[in-house]
Design a protein around this nucleic acid. Structure first.
Length: 449
RNA sequence: GCCGGGAUGGGGUAGUCUGGUAUCCUGUGGGACUGUGGAUCCCUAGACCCGAGUUCAAAUCUCGGUCCCGGCCCCA
């Protein structure tokens, strides 16, 4: 016991109940992405560290699981998925028809201090739409992200949409670009207006522009707030209006224009958005995205893209807080032989049911009937099949409905067919009247999955 | 990197202040029970996060570490 090996800090094990829930939510996300015409891709768990330092600077090495392999290569476990996807695109997918609509799901790793909704190994679900730069593409991406949230049953989420170009344009007019602009945007993102003001003054910006910028970042509300931007009539404003219009036509809910959404990253070029669940507290952001231009950083031509990444674990926490119901998976049948001699018969029946896609468990502990029934109940099986010598002489078994306790004899030859009906599986060998024959004898659960 | 709260069988807990044989619930395995109580009763196994120190004696006190929870910093 003392020598038990602990799981590394910030990682998790997932028990069957939890995996069932995770896979279920994941499948809803995938399904939605595919309904939108996105196709799945996967990239390696580790990459050259350079892939990420190019984009974010050498400072992030501190926050990555970076290591040298036996060939002396500087590698790292991937801290996110946008860069790998763009590398993949530049390397091998540039000749695919545009726009490319890709989605992905997988583990990422960051060497950070774990806290609520924050782990060292965490999962991201994301999508990228590559090769288009127009309002409808941004709307498509935002639409997918919010549709996923809706589909999985999340309530109380807000989609905050901004446009980083509006702020960048004003800064550019004042001659502030690159690093300096990023510094200011970072402060604004955290709503540290006083500090942002100090920096802007240092960079020699006019009082009017400073006031305007701070004013703009505070603008948030329905689409109509865009009208408040009267003094500013840039392309960006028009672009954002169009995005909002399309989203409205698409019927997307919980939208909020919020020009304070900044995302302090250099490569974001236009529309940026976040989805947050306020009840989550400090780690309330469950999704972030926007349009960007990264391909040229990895040696490709300049290609505009737009995408998002959902923090899968946080999203799950949000769903758990609102006590969402996940359909429970059940094993259909548990086969119990009453004597040693019947064990072979039990496996025979088990194999036949399994080959007909009826999920079947069989006694592997040589337990008594009572213990077996108890076990069957505790694992939540739907039907128990009891094999006894008396019935076997007549080639029948006892079929027990574990929910109701009802028990009926049934011919072995009819077992598969009957269960297939009860489960809602279309039986191969038609025989549709079997259902009619036996239908009244056992109540059939309505939640057949 | 910083601040706070924690860690006792698989899960949940009592005991810790005030040092002395570790409590209860639940779950696991088995039995009563050899063909039908998913009930009941019984039995078995199973823990003081790790290391050092103080002490006749440490789950308990001291120090160091690990991990968990929450909050900062950060969040590509």
């Amino acid at each position: 016991m003392d020598q038990m090996i602990q799981r590394p800090r910030g990682t998790r094990d997932f028990a069957p109940d939890e995996m069932e829930k995770r896979r279920y939510i994941e499948s809803l996300m995938r399904k939605e992405a595919e309904i939108f015409g996105f196709r799945e891709i996967a990239t390696p768990i580790f990459e050259h560290a350079e892939l990420f330092t190019i984009k974010s600077g050498p400072g992030i090495l501190e926050e990555m699981y970076a290591f040298k392999d036996k060939g002396g290569r500087e590698l790292t476990l991937r801290p996110e998925l946008t860069a790998p996807v763009m590398r993949f695109f530049v390397n091998e997918l540039t000749d695919m028809p545009r726009p490319l609509k890709l989605y992905y799901m997988g583990p990422c790793f960051r060497y950070e201090r774990p806290q609520s909704g924050r782990f060292r190994e965490f999962y991201q679900f994301g999508a990228e739409l590559i090769g288009a730069k127009n309002p409808e593409s941004d709307a498509e991406i935002i639409s997918l992200a919010s549709s996923i949230m809706k589909k999985i049953g999340l309530r109380d989420y807000k989609v905050r949409i901004g446009h980083i170009g509006i702020l960048r344009d004003i800064l550019r007019k004042e001659g502030v670009e690159g690093e300096n602009a990023s510094l200011i945007l970072q402060k604004l993102d955290k709503k540290m207006y006083d500090e942002a003001r100090v920096v802007m003054e240092e960079k020699g910006m006019s009082e009017a522009s400073i006031k305007e910028i701070i004013g703009i970042t505070k603008i948030s509300g329905q689409q109509s707030v865009l009208k408040e931007l009267q003094s500013f009539k840039g392309e960006a404003k028009e672009y954002l209006s169009q995005v909002m219009e399309i989203l409205e036509i698409l019927g997307i809910e919980n939208l909020l224009v919020d020009l304070g959404v900044v995302r302090g990253l250099d490569y974001y070029t236009g529309v940026v958005f976040e989805i947050e669940v306020p009840s989550l507290g400090a780690e309330k952001q469950v999704c972030g995205g926007g349009s960007y231009s990264l391909a040229e950083l990895f040696g490709g031509e300049k290609v505009f893209s737009t995408g998002f990444a959902i923090g899968f674990d946080r999203t799950l926490i949000a769903l758990e807080k609102q006590k969402i119901e996940i359909p429970k998976k059940r094993v259909d049948v548990y086969v119990i032989p009453l004597t040693e001699e019947l064990r072979g018969k039990a496996f025979e029946i088990t194999a036949r049911l399994r080959s007909n896609e009826i999920s079947t468990d069989v006694d592997l502990m040589r337990r008594s009937l009572q213990k077996n029934l108890k076990y069957a109940a505790s694992i939540g099986v739907r039907y128990a099949i009891i094999l006894g010598e008396r019935e076997m002489e007549k080639n029948i078994v006892l079929l027990r409905d574990m929910d109701t306790g009802e028990q009926v004899p049934i011919a072995i030859t009819e077992l598969t067919e009957w269960l297939a009906h009860a489960r809602g599986i279309a039986p191969e060998a038609a025989g549709g009247d079997t259902k009619k024959r036996l239908g009244g004898k056992l109540s059939r659960p309505s939640d057949a999955s």
